[in-house]
């Protein structure tokens, strides 16, 4: 394992002036129903804002799910903060590395009850209005029933719910894919604000390279389950 502070490993780009490695994937493979979804994926994801981009079905979301052990790779190894993921207790890992899925899936009840549930899992007393504000929602949303929210509001409530746990890393799976432009812009603004206000890293999966340009500092390109490129934003799209 590489010592802290050294640059992330990547098949194509290797530099010494990058932020420290958050996740390091080494020869990671994953199959589903006999189909190889990921093949020999080796890449480093640094602290900060990373985007995993690629076409639909390229294995981006699968890769994201491996990062907080919603699934485990068939082969290879993933390390988080220089420790293999297998050494982490899965529940504790997920409270530190929170995943916000592509489609909103809130629990029945109000927005606040969802936030309290998530914070309770992490053993925290939630600051509901702060979490809502960070996710771009007004305090009045706390009492709203989740069944009466628009998809965009639900997605921001999902973000607020994850933030209520005060995670160190956010994994965002296509957070705006189901939204119109206005809702997408609101979520993106919330993410930019989040990065400015909190010491939090995020890994964003997106099929849209433009979104990666707007939000990320580091980009991993993936095609047909293989790494097609990786590096700082300016170089990844050069």
């Amino acid at each position: 394992m590489r010592p802290a502070g050294r640059p992330p490993r990547c098949r194509f780009i290797f530099r010494w002036d990058h932020p420290p490695v958050l996740f390091e994937l080494r020869e990671v493979g994953f199959s589903r129903g006999g189909r190889r979804v990921l093949e020999s994926v080796s890449a480093g994801l640094p602290a900060g804002a990373t985007a995993i981009v690629g076409p639909s079905g390229s294995g981006k979301s699968t890769l994201l799910r491996l990062l907080n052990r919603l699934a485990d790779p068939d082969s290879g190894e993933i390390a988080y903060r220089e420790r293999p993921l297998g050494e982490y207790e899965p529940l504790a890992l997920r409270r530190e590395v929170a995943l916000v899925p592509q489609l909103p899936a809130l629990l029945e009840g109000t927005v606040e009850s969802n936030l309290r549930y998530a914070a309770g899992l992490a053993g925290r007393e939630p600051d509901v209005s702060r979490a809502l504000r960070l996710a771009g929602l007004g305090a009045e949303f706390a009492e709203r029933d989740v069944g009466r929210l628009s998809v965009g509001e639900q997605q921001r409530a999902m973000l607020a719910r994850a933030l209520a746990q005060e995670p160190r890393v956010l994994l965002l799976d296509e957070p705006t894919s189901a939204l119109d432009h206005a809702a997408r812009d609101a979520i993106e603004a919330a993410l930019v604000e989040l990065r400015r206000e909190l010491e939090i890293s995020f890994v964003l999966v997106s099929h849209d390279p433009e979104q990666a340009r707007r939000l990320a500092e580091w980009v991993v390109r993936i095609e047909s389950g293989r790494i097609a490129g990786c590096g700082p934003l300016a170089e990844a799209f050069a």
């Binding site: 907080n68 997920r94 899925p101 899936a105 809130l106």
Partner: peptide, 10 residues
Amino acid sequence: ARIEATLALG
């Protein structure tokens, strides 16, 4: 989806 989203929170 809801169950996995809940697992994802720990």
